[in-house]
Amino acid sequence: MDRRDIEIFLTLADELHFGRTAQRLLVSQARVSQTIAKLERQLGVLLFVRTSRRVQLTATGAVLADEVRAGWDRIEQAVSAARAAGQSVATTLTVSLEAPALADLAADVFGRFTSHQPSTRIVFREAGFADPLDLLRRREVDVAVTNAPIEEPDIEPGPVIHTEDVVLAVARTHPLAAQHIVTLEDMVGHVVLRAGRRAAPYWDGSGQTPSTWQELLAAVAAGEGISPVAKHAAEYFARPTVTMVPFTPGSPSIRWAICWRRGERTAGIDALVRAVG
Rank of each mutant, 00 (worst) to 15 (best):
I150F: 12
Q214L: 06
P149N: 08
A238S: 12
A37N: 10
G128C: 03
P159F: 03
E7M: 07
E185T: 11
V182W: 02
G19W: 11
W72Y: 15
R197H: 14
T92C: 10
G196T: 06
S96C: 09
V68C: 04
E76Y: 00
V143N: 01
D131Y: 06
G86V: 10
Y202C: 02
G86W: 10
F113R: 00
L64D: 13
H190L: 05
E224Q: 12
Y202S: 02
A22K: 04
I8H: 05
I269T: 02
I181A: 12
E152V: 05
A222E: 14
P132M: 09
G128N: 13
R265S: 03
S227I: 01
R261H: 05
Y202N: 01
R262L: 13
D14G: 07
R239K: 04
I181Y: 10
G205D: 07
T212H: 09
I181Q: 13
R83A: 15
G263Y: 10
L176F: 03
E40H: 08
T243W: 01
S206H: 02
V63Q: 13
V89M: 15
S206P: 01
G44R: 05
A101R: 00
Q42E: 15
T120V: 13
D204A: 03
I6R: 09
A230L: 01
L46M: 13
S80M: 13
A218Y: 08
F124A: 05
E140A: 13
E264F: 11
T209C: 08
D104P: 00
R69N: 07
P118A: 11
A200I: 08
T51M: 10
A37W: 02
G189L: 08
V145L: 13
L43V: 06
R41T: 13
R41L: 12
L12H: 07
R261F: 02
V188W: 00
A148R: 08
T21Q: 02
L57N: 14
E40Q: 14
A267W: 00
L25K: 02
E40L: 09
V170L: 04
R255C: 10
R83N: 11
I258W: 03
P100D: 10
D66Y: 11
Q23D: 14
R41P: 01
F9N: 05
A230R: 00
A107W: 00
I36Y: 06
V188G: 03
D134Y: 11
R138V: 11
Q23H: 11
T243R: 12
V79T: 09
A200M: 10
G205P: 03
S206D: 01
P201W: 00
E264T: 12
D104V: 14
T209N: 04
H180W: 04
L176Q: 03
D165I: 00
E126N: 12
L217D: 11
I75W: 10
E152S: 07
I36P: 07
T91G: 14
S227H: 01
F124M: 05
R265H: 07
I258N: 03
S88N: 12
R198T: 15
Q42P: 01
T173E: 14
R3W: 09
L184F: 00
S227W: 00
D5M: 08
I8A: 04
G189A: 08
R53N: 10
R137G: 07
D108L: 09
I8E: 06
A233D: 02
D131L: 05
D134N: 12
G71Y: 07
F129L: 02
E152A: 08
R53I: 10
W203L: 03
S115R: 13
W72G: 04
A148W: 08
D73M: 07
I155A: 12
